[in-house]
Amino acid sequence: MVRRRAGDAGGAPDVLDVSERFWSSGGERLDVDGAVLVRNPAAPGHPSGTFLTAVRTGSAEQLDRVLARCHDLVEGGCRRVVVDAATPPVVAAHLAVEDWTPTTQLHLVLPATAAVPAAGIAPRPLSTDEDWARATELFRADHLEEDARHVRSARPAAATAAAVALRRSLTPAATWFAVERDGGFVAMVAAWAGDGGTGVVEDVFVRPDARHAGLARELLRFAVGQARAGGAGPVLIGAETDDTPKHLYARFGFRPAAVGHSWVRGT
């Protein structure tokens, strides 16, 4: 399947391509016998940074060979396989037999024509080791809240550390910002201007004790402004299909565009 690059004349951005390029921007792409392995040395075990995509294997046996090759190239192997309209059905079928878990991600796009007021806050960019250590506390709170909502065991702290390492590897192309109050971080957001005309907003999180005061909306205004100042027109954001932030994003003006599908193991 040939995807049009986001921002090309004549159509809307391919949001799945934009999202993939965002998460793979800190790594490398390797052709692996009928698939592409995205490998991020900063977080080799994190499924958002190291994954298989463009999978075109025509049999279960060929897919097993690809996965075995990934074990040779990445410590612990590949934990996520992205499927799209051109992925042969046998891929998902075989992963299901092998007890991989299907996952979905909702992608929404704020049109380039959507006017967004200037933010009333000025989060500061993360730059130092201390900044990232404090941000890790927010990521940890986010992860624990998410695990509790899904009624599952809390992921280990090492998984949170890998998620933070992955994001830090995406800088300086993308920038993470934090809102600081009383000497601590209470909220964060990330912005990426993109490389094809479509930006990305990620990791909108407000600490529970700072919620219900409009801070999340201000973070969205700020991050969209940052992406557009860097040259973006439309702006992409992702949300879990079963979580409430998707409603906030829709009210803000983001429009549902696509649902991405993956299979993961080890979660």
Rank of each mutant, 00 (worst) to 15 (best):
M1E: 05
V2W: 00
A12G: 08
V15T: 13
L16D: 07
S19W: 01
S19E: 10
W23R: 05
G26V: 15
G27V: 14
E28N: 04
V32D: 02
R39N: 08
P41Q: 11
S48V: 14
T50H: 15
G58W: 02
C70K: 02
H71F: 03
D72N: 04
D72G: 13
D72L: 12
L73W: 03
V74R: 00
R80P: 12
V83E: 05
V91H: 01
A92N: 08
H94A: 10
H94K: 04
V97I: 15
P102R: 06
T103R: 13
T104H: 04
Q105N: 09
L108Y: 02
V109P: 04
P111S: 00
P111D: 00
A118P: 12
A122G: 08
A122S: 12
R124D: 10
D129C: 08
A135C: 15
E137Q: 11
A141Q: 08
E146Q: 09
R152N: 00
A159L: 13
A163Y: 01
V164A: 06
A165E: 01
R167G: 14
R167L: 10
R167S: 07
L170W: 06
L170S: 01
T171R: 04
T171G: 05
P172V: 08
A173G: 05
F177G: 09
F177R: 09
A178G: 12
G183D: 07
V186F: 00
V189H: 00
A193R: 09
A193F: 06
G197D: 07
D203G: 04
A210K: 02
H212C: 06
G214V: 11
G214Y: 03
R221V: 05
R221G: 11
A223C: 10
G225V: 07
A229T: 13
A229N: 04
G230K: 04
V235F: 00
V235T: 02
I237S: 00
A239V: 08
D242K: 05
D243V: 15
P245C: 11
K246H: 07
L248F: 13
Y249T: 04
W263P: 06
G266T: 09
T267G: 15
